[in-house]
């Protein structure tokens, strides 16, 4: 896993323009036609993806999800950072 440049204050997203997004029973499925990569996201990763529109930082996403899940932002932030790193590595998020 690559460290996220800019750490938790980096804004996440928006999605790369070529990425196709479909929901299957609440889980987000992503397809990148340039790399032909497919990813099926679990419920938490799907929630992170839905917030990855370029508006929020990793810290802000962690706070929003922690509030929704009834947990502490500090306990969820490492997982959010990890999944954002995977999105970047897979090319699903637009590069600055």
């Amino acid at each position: 896993m690559l460290p996220v440049m800019g750490g938790r204050s980096q804004r996440v997203g928006p999605p790369a323009p070529q990425v196709v997004e479909t929901e299957v029973d609440g889980d987000v499925c992503l397809y990148d036609p340039t790399s032909e990569r497919v990813a099926v996201l679990n419920a938490t990763a799907s929630d992170v993806w839905r917030l990855a529109d370029g508006t929020f930082t990793i810290s802000e996403i962690s706070e929003l999800l922690a509030s929704s899940y009834g947990t502490q932002p500090t306990s969820i932030a490492p997982d959010v950072e990890a999944v954002v790193s995977e999105f970047i590595e897979a090319g699903f998020l637009a590069q600055e």
Binding site: V20, T22, D25, C29, P33, E36, V38
Partner: peptide, 17 residues
């Protein structure tokens, strides 16, 4: 699926749904 990956993805997600 390599013939038209985007179409394959769409059909697979439609079937899964």
């Amino acid at each position: 699926h390599f013939k038209d990956p985007a179409r394959a993805f769409r059909i697979a997600t439609d079937v899964a749904s």
